[in-house]
Design a binder for these strands. Sequence first.
DNA 1: GATTGAAGTTACTCTAGCGTAACCTTACGG
DNA 2: CCGTAAGGTTACGCTAGAGTAACTTCAATC
Lengths: 219, 219
Amino acid sequence: MLARMSSAPTFKRLPRAVREQQMLDAAVKVFSRRGYHSASMDDIAEDAGISKPMVYAYLGTKESLFTACLHREGTRMMEAIVGAVAAEMPPDEQLWRALRAFFGFVGAHRDGWAVLYRQARSEQVFAGELSMMRARVIEVVVVLLRRNLPTPAPGTREVRDIDLEVMAYALVGAAESLAEWLTDHPTEDPERLATRLMNATWLGAGQLRLGELWRPPAA
Amino acid sequence: MLARMSSAPTFKRLPRAVREQQMLDAAVKVFSRRGYHSASMDDIAEDAGISKPMVYAYLGTKESLFTACLHREGTRMMEAIVGAVAAEMPPDEQLWRALRAFFGFVGAHRDGWAVLYRQARSEQVFAGELSMMRARVIEVVVVLLRRNLPTPAPGTREVRDIDLEVMAYALVGAAESLAEWLTDHPTEDPERLATRLMNATWLGAGQLRLGELWRPPAA
DNA sequence: GATTGAAGTTACTCTAGCGTAACCTTACGG
DNA sequence: CCGTAAGGTTACGCTAGAGTAACTTCAATC
């Protein structure tokens, strides 16, 4: 089918599916470095090794090109995370594995993460879609947190839904922030970082369940 | 000095200092809603109730205008936080008050926060400056965390610098994420949110010091 | 071995929007 | 009461860059 690669040295004329991926690769790279507006379609076309009209022919306008990047990278991230956990695992292990997968993804796909986290948030055309993805993640984290806080035993304090939601937001934000930290510490591997974060938050959650409560100072 | 406001109903010809603040107000508002690139200088001038050349005369190019916004809002935020704590307070109270001041600032200056957090990060012209501000915050948090973990008593585990740094990044990220959450929960006041976050993280920090450690599952 | 259409190109058009030149107009100090 | 500079305006030049028209070329199919 497409096995005749050996004959031509610098062959052009690649099938659409291949070109599309090359274009998306280039787009993610350029968007992540320059930002949505500063990235020009010419830049992206050049980086993909193709001429601009081909980009328009395959991926449409700049906006739909960016959306395509968003979807590809978002799906990859979600799949990396979802594929790392199984429903039978204990909740803390699920969370840890999810974090590890997330940090692994960020480490391996810097550009994709930058597009998702940095660029997409600032453009309100894409912000809606993005915050829906984030909301899905938060919801999953809420479920995981709740599953680790079973029926309140006598003498323990009930953890209310709003507390769980706040914890989930905090945890997700912490993970995003540590993704930043990862960039400055390339020697740190995702597993150690996931463990660190678990330590920094999970014990807190555990204590909370036992009724320990930090209280604001009087006055 | 400038007390003659009562005489003229719709007076023009305001002194430079006043106009500059109006322009910055408008710029922060428009930048926060539209983003750096999509915001046009005409938009900003119109919103400020002045013509475009005046904006150029007082604040210079678009880039320097945005930088001015960044500095004003960044300074305001820093002052709100720094002004809320005093060195004699116990470290946990300092942290709590800082968080409360931060959430208070975000609640009261949505636009300013959006400019700082959303827009400035995506443009690498400003990203450097921004990450320096963030680094200063992180450093302060590291100090606060360390001061709450005094000389390790016998039988307790030493908390290393890198752990503190990770916790600080996590805490700052959590706060940023909860700033987002605040937008969707306008009834929640900054004080309660600060307390929630303290509960979600401080107890964790306390436990960490006592040698409790979450461990990743084997294999 | 023509035909068709997918892969690819060059060379434009057109607009948004930054930045400015050239020009008014009012307050106020001498 | 007049000169001047600060406050203010209209109207424009110019460029970057999105999007397209109008081609060319190759490979597979009948």
